[in-house]
Measured scan of single mutants.
Amino acid sequence: MSIQHFRVALIPFFAAFCLPVFAHPETLVKVKDAEDQLGARVGYIELDLNSGKILESFRPEERFPMMSTFKVLLCGAVLSRVDAGQEQLGRRIHYSQNDLVEYSPVTEKHLTDGMTVRELCSAAITMSDNTAANLLLTTIGGPKELTAFLHNMGDHVTRLDRWEPELNEAIPNDERDTTMPAAMATTLRKLLTGELLTLASRQQLIDWMEADKVAGPLLRSALPAGWFIADKSGAGERGSRGIIAALGPDGKPSRIVVIYTTGSQATMDERNRQIAEIGASLIKHW
């Protein structure tokens, strides 16, 4: 067993022997301040990774656009098919120029040779490549099948209805392509620590998230040296922004954090800054 596999296998073990965790309302004060600064709703939840206990939450059962955070769930569904012998990570998928959609920095470079399922998941999570996500959605049967996968996990809230990039439209009061912070946090925890996926697939999923290259201005910008984070960000229309993450000190994750916002007129930089400040408060009061 590799060191990384050992780390993920012992996530519940280490967490069980940690000192009790206590909620700190100071972080919620910052979440509410972010709402004021952005002029928009902000949803927040913080779960203990081992027990699933909610440590703090704000608007945990209000719907927010998922945006690209759905790509972690998508690759979880792909990995479940791999575990069941219905898919192979090494299978190569070929596609054409007509398949390319807006923001496809990886797939646009491989029109000639195609990409493997493993490479597509890596591109979808680490670079948020939209064509990679659409190609992977095709392998599982489309958005409705991802929703069905989530329902089978016990998540009857999260739903995907459309493809990239239309799913980022974020129309107010439109339930399409949305989740709730509580539902997303619980589902992410199941994917990373539950028995739904094999140990190898859980490790692969967290490795992809740990290698995320496009979430630097968010929670990662607030992390002290030595902290662990595996995350996936999302951005959408109407001032929408979000991030889902597993993080913790001492090089291992111990909490799940989900943050979503929508309806702001603020710039992307300002949305990023507010999420980073929430992260800084979380870490300060850990």
Rank of each mutant, 00 (worst) to 15 (best):
S128P: 00
M66C: 06
R41N: 10
D177G: 00
K252R: 12
A245W: 05
C121D: 01
F228A: 08
R41W: 04
S68Q: 03
R271A: 10
G234A: 09
F64W: 02
A124G: 07
A133L: 00
I275T: 04
L199P: 14
V101C: 09
T112Q: 12
M268S: 08
Y103G: 06
Y103C: 05
I229L: 07
H110Y: 15
G279C: 07
L137D: 00
T158Q: 02
A148R: 12
S201A: 13
I283E: 01
R91T: 08
G216H: 08
Q86H: 15
Y44W: 03
D36L: 14
P172R: 10
T107Q: 01
L74Y: 00
K284E: 13
L199F: 15
S96C: 09
L282C: 09
R92A: 09
G263T: 06
R238M: 10
V82S: 08
T178I: 05
V157H: 12
T178E: 03
V101R: 08
R162A: 05
P165T: 12
P60G: 15
R255N: 04
M184I: 11
L223S: 06
L192I: 12
T131D: 05
M115V: 06
K30F: 03
I206Q: 11
G239D: 00
G279F: 05
A245I: 03
N130H: 00
G114R: 03
L120V: 05
Q204A: 10
N168F: 00
I243F: 06
I45E: 03
M184Y: 09
S281H: 13
R81N: 09
A215R: 05
T179C: 02
R238I: 08
A84W: 09
N168G: 10
V78N: 02
T69H: 06
D48Y: 02
G263Y: 04
W227L: 00
L197N: 05
K213Q: 14
D269F: 11
K190E: 15
E56I: 05
L197R: 06
L47C: 07
E169F: 10
I243M: 07
L223E: 02
S68M: 02
L191K: 02
M127Q: 11
T178K: 01
I283F: 10
K109H: 13
A225G: 12
A34H: 04
S221T: 14
G43E: 03
G242L: 00
L150F: 12
D212G: 07
Q86R: 15
S233N: 00
Y103P: 07
K232G: 00
